[in-house]
Amino acid sequence: MPHDHSDDHSHMSDIDARVRALESLLSEKGYIDSAAVDEIVQTYETQIGPQNGAHVVAKAWTDPVFRDWLAADATAAIHSLGYTSRQGEHMEAVFNDADTHHLVVCTLCSCYPWSVLGLPPVWYKSPPFRSRAVIDPRGVLAEFGLTLPDHVAVQVHDSTAEIRYLVIPQRPLGSEGMDEASLRRLVTRNAMIGTGLALSPEATS
């Protein structure tokens, strides 16, 4: 490959070398299969993301039987759509309504419903969000541009390694005639964490 400094040696960062050390040692001992590791990266980069959760929410908005199932056994209901957790944790769906708004956090580390939302955004993993979401949820929501009426209670759910939460936002006004496929586009990642609301149909048209 032509290069201006063809006699230059390669540069590897310390952190890159640490990851390569882990991979090469564990692979030599048979603890990992490098091809399977690459496949996991690919899957999380391309196939698993908030579009999965949006599917769950849109179906809950349009199918009362599914909604009841989701409320009773979210793990099984979500699994029925083909989204399975590789970590085996239980899912719980929490439903926003006129009186209650749900917000999800993980104060310990950053447990997150990967199977339906993909990997967590940077802010979800940040110490200020992890600590302040519990102490001052309304203040945190305001920073996301979400100011709720005083009569709406904010309920904060702390995720664990065993239980992950998916917020089912309220179906927006004006979306009555929309089918499930169009409704999915109204469901944002933040709405399913509770730091936002579902979009109004005008916002996406």
Binding site: I15, V19, L26, I32, I40, Y44, R86, L119, N190
Partner: peptide, 29 residues
């Protein structure tokens, strides 16, 4: 917080080593 956007989507992994470290844990588990 520097570099944090609260609304916009961001790349899943900032650098390749992050993806490898992530996948190693998922795979070992």
């Amino acid at each position: 917080l520097p570099g944090i956007t609260l609304q916009d989507d961001e790349p899943v992994f900032a650098e390749p080593w992050e993806a490898q470290a992530f996948a190693l844990i998922v795979h070992l588990h």
